[in-house]
Amino acid sequence: MSSTPPEPPPTGSGEEAHFRALESLYRAAPINRLFESDIAITGPGQCDIVFDVDERYFHAAGAVHGSSYFKMLDDAAFYAVNSLVTDRFVLTTAFNLLFTKPIKPGRLRASGRWLSGRKRVYVAEATLIDGDGEEAGRGTGTFMRSHIPLAGLPGYKSA
């Protein structure tokens, strides 16, 4: 992960420009200064985010705190959904987590996938895979369109 500012999304129009603009939005979010991570929207309704975790994210028993699981899984599911919504920011309205394995330091991948919904409420899931290729957690969330235009958000650079 680098500390250089994100590059602006490529000019153009359509789906790819929206995906790159969402990736730029993710990278511009202040919370992501605390989590070394990067994003790739891989297609409509699909998102991968890689995270590097170390002891800074541990609870008292020496494994990654559950709040980190939520951050990783929610982000992947959220961006999978927002890849389908080109005009508005979506909001998480509920999220259920399943912790399947303690996480140790290293690189993790959260993969989000849209499941259903196309008008106002969307459902997506995400899985968290550790450096050994094993599932460490999974989550399912509901998301809804907000009244917040994407084009007005700092970091979202529409083409």
Rank of each mutant, 00 (worst) to 15 (best):
A40D: 14
F51L: 00
W114D: 03
V64D: 08
V64F: 09
Y57C: 00
G112F: 05
A63Y: 15
H65R: 05
G66I: 02
I41Q: 10
H65N: 12
A76E: 07
A28F: 14
A63H: 15
K101V: 00
F95E: 09
G62H: 12
G66L: 02
L115W: 07
D48T: 09
A29H: 14
R88F: 13
K71T: 14
S83A: 07
L115M: 08
L98P: 00
Q46V: 10
D87R: 13
L84T: 14
L22F: 14
I41G: 09
S67N: 01
E23S: 02
A60L: 10
S67H: 03
D38G: 11
F35H: 06
S68N: 09
R27M: 03
A28H: 15
L73T: 06
H59M: 11
D54I: 00
Q46T: 10
P44Y: 06
L22H: 10
F99P: 01
F99N: 05
G45L: 10
A63G: 01
R107L: 04
K104A: 15
M72Y: 02
L97Y: 13
A110G: 11
Y26E: 00
I41H: 12
T93A: 03
Y57N: 03
M72P: 01
E23G: 01
G66M: 05
F99M: 05
G43V: 01
V81S: 04
F89P: 01
G112Y: 06
T86M: 09
K71Q: 14
A77S: 15
A77D: 10
Q46R: 14
A60M: 13
F95H: 04
W114S: 06
P105E: 13
P44Q: 08
E55S: 09
L115H: 08
R88E: 15
R33Q: 10
A63T: 15
T100P: 02
K71L: 07
D48F: 04
I39G: 02
G62I: 01
F58Q: 08
Y69H: 13
R33K: 12
A40G: 10
K101F: 08
A94H: 15
D38F: 05
G43R: 03
E55T: 05
F51N: 00
R56G: 04
S37P: 02
A29G: 11
E36H: 11
N82E: 15
F51G: 00
F99E: 02
L115I: 09
T100A: 04
V53C: 01
F51T: 00
I39W: 07
D52K: 00
F78N: 01
L91I: 00
A80T: 03
L25G: 04
C47Y: 10
I39D: 04
G45M: 08
L91Q: 03
I39C: 01
D48G: 01
Y57I: 02
L97S: 12
A94F: 12
C47V: 04
A110W: 05
S83I: 07
D52N: 00
L91T: 01
A63L: 11
A76G: 12
T93M: 07
G43Q: 08
L98G: 04
A29K: 11
H59A: 08
S111R: 15
T100I: 00
L115Y: 02
G112P: 06
R109S: 00
S111I: 04
S37E: 05
R56Y: 09
K104R: 14
D74S: 07
K104Y: 15
H59N: 15
T100D: 04
D38M: 04
N82K: 11
R113D: 08
Y69E: 06
